[in-house]
Design a protein around this nucleic acid. Structure first.
Length: 491
RNA sequence: GCCCCUAUCGUCUAGCGGUCUAGGACGCGGCCCUUUCAAGGCUGAAACCGGGGUUCGAGUCCCCGUAGGGGCACCA
């Protein structure tokens, strides 16, 4: 960085619902930037919309960020030198500075009601003008204000945009952006209820909290000139701006909580995703790790700590990126395979419990190596190995039991051979089973697959399962023999 | 309607004027391995939006189209 200010960045969500996946990525870019430059990552809550603020939302946002491992250095729960970190507790600041702007001719009072504004906006649209406000209250004199105040009319404070100028700012992701001021709105800074709007509140706080870089989503680009004008009006040092691309739904358009369940972080938490995979994936969407392995292929699996070592905000992509859940699932599978059996067992546990299965960590420890290489989501472990925890499984119909190319008689012979061999074993360990059954196919003159498939179906009740010997060892000899005998009886 | 941003395989991306007959990943096809399903290994198909410039030379720079996205609230 070309300046000496210490790096301080913030993620500033509104507590109006679930933590959005796009928000997680914005938070992550902030986190990566702070880590890369030895700075501070600050969490600030922007709850200046009293109508939309939801009570439980705050804790959900905090939990979501913690789940993702994006821990903050200062924030509402842990405090810091620049608190409070909740905007509704900082109202005096906004009011003070809003009136400062009015006193210095940079902003003005406006008394229109919501209904009047709708009329004005509609009229402008009818005339081919952008919707919005026509700045008419600029004409009001202090005498008018006094009169209207005496009538008890509430007012808002609006920014007086210098109309005949052009506003230019540098974006670290996109370069120079310039806008003619007469296309800008005289945005409301302080609402009639005394609460600030985003435009005023965020930048007063950014200034007071010594934020050095504003890393936020690109939907803020159009209103950034407003913020620049505000910085100039106050005479405050401007932060650097970094606008990162939005995440799009594969069908196009912003991914929205209303229409897409995968917009909320909770979708991934309950869906069997690993936080490591989600943060890893979010790094790959809109940014590129860029390191290659010894085969010359780009490394796809890496931690956010590794990413932080080389993170460069100027190399963030400028294009909106579609959210490819299929690739995320693949990455999740990659991450699952890196886990130890203990770790995997621990992470699978809640999913088995949620399915109503009586499992213990002990048994899951045996299950972990069986499912580790065959699943992409933790939830799949239940589908794949849930039968291990059920007292009994249904005996498949003969059509399922009998493999392609085999008759019922031969299939019965397979099951009988398996039954008798297993019954005679000194113990039921995997190597013992294998020694007894391995030659079965040859003995009967059939293919290996034809030999094992009926056994699998009879024992697990499924045509697809983890490796058979391991599964049978976990189930136990008694149940295995019972299920084999029952299958034989149906043929 | 007006303003802003963007534009490489289906998707995520590398490419920062010549080394591009455009590289990697997911997904897809084939082969191998294999008791099912996976995982793994090898391999194949697959892209520079269009048109003008600039230049000895353009995926890379500029302009115009087009397309996509975002914004235009007393929401953030």
């Amino acid at each position: 960085m070309s300046e000496s200010r210490p790096v301080r960045v913030r993620f500033a969500p509104s507590p109006t619902g679930d933590l959005h996946i796009g928000g997680v990525r914005t938070a992550q870019f902030n986190w990566l930037f702070a880590r890369r430059h030895g700075g501070k990552f600050i969490l600030r809550i922007e709850d200046t919309d009293q109508k939309r603020t939801q009570d439980q939302s705050l804790s959900g946002i905090l939990d979501g960020l913690r789940w993702a491992g994006l821990l903050w250095d200062e924030g509402p729960d842990i405090g810091g030198d620049y608190g409070p970190y909740i905007q509704s507790q900082r109202l005096a600041h906004y009011q003070q500075w809003a009136h400062w702007l009015v006193d210095h001719g940079k902003a003005y009072r406006a008394y229109e009601t919501t209904e009047e504004l709708e009329l004005i906006s509609a009229a402008r649209k009818a005339n081919g003008l952008p919707p919005g406000y026509d700045r008419r209250a600029r004409q009001l004199t202090p005498e008018d204000w006094a009169r209207l105040d005496a009538e008890g009319k509430p007012y808002v404070i609006r920014l007086k945009v210098p109309l005949d100028e052009e506003t230019i700012f540098e974006d670290m992701v996109r370069g120079t952006i310039r806008v003619k001021n007469d296309t800008l709105q005289d945005a409301v800074l302080l609402k009639a209820d005394g609460f600030p709007t985003y435009h005023l509140a965020h930048m007063v706080d950014d200034h007071l909290m010594a934020i050095s870089h504003v890393i936020r989503a690109e939907e803020w680009i159009p209103s950034t000139p407003l913020h620049v004008i505000l910085y100039q009006a106050f005479g405050w040092q401007m932060p650097h701006f970094c606008h990162v691309p939005v995440i799009l739904h594969p069908s196009g358009g912003k991914i929205s909580k209303r229409k897409h369940p995968e917009a909320a972080i909770s979708y991934f938490i309950t869906g069997g995703y690993l936080p490591e995979a989600v943060t890893n994936f979010l790094c790959n969407v809109g940014w590129n790790y860029g390191k290659t392995d010894d085969k010359g292929e780009e490394i796809q699996v890496f931690t956010k700590e590794q990413a932080a070592e080389i993170f460069d905000i100027t190399r963030v992509t400028q294009t909106g990126t579609k959210f490819d859940v299929v690739k995320l699932k693949w990455l999740n599978g990659e991450w699952i395979r890196t886990l130890t059996d203990e770790d995997l067992a621990r992470r699978m546990l809640p999913f088995f419990e949620a399915a109503g299965l009586a499992v213990t960590l002990d048994v899951l420890l045996k299950v972990a190596p069986l499912v580790k290489e065959r699943m992409k989501l933790l939830t799949e472990a239940v589908e794949m190995a849930g039968f291990l925890f059920r007292e009994d499984v249904p005996t498949p119909a003969p059509s399922v039991l009998i493999p392609k190319g085999l008759t019922a008689e031969t299939t019965r012979a397979v099951l009988q051979l398996a039954h008798d061999s297993l019954a005679a074993l000194p113990d039921f360990a995997v190597p013992t089973q294998e020694a007894a059954l391995r030659g079965g196919a040859e003995q009967l003159g059939i293919k290996t697959g034809q030999f094992f498939n009926p056994i699998r179906a009879a024992v697990t009740g499924q045509t697809v399962s983890p490796p058979l010997f391991e599964v049978m060892e976990i189930i136990g000899r008694e149940k295995v023999l019972l299920r084999l005998a029952r299958a034989i009886a149906t043929l």
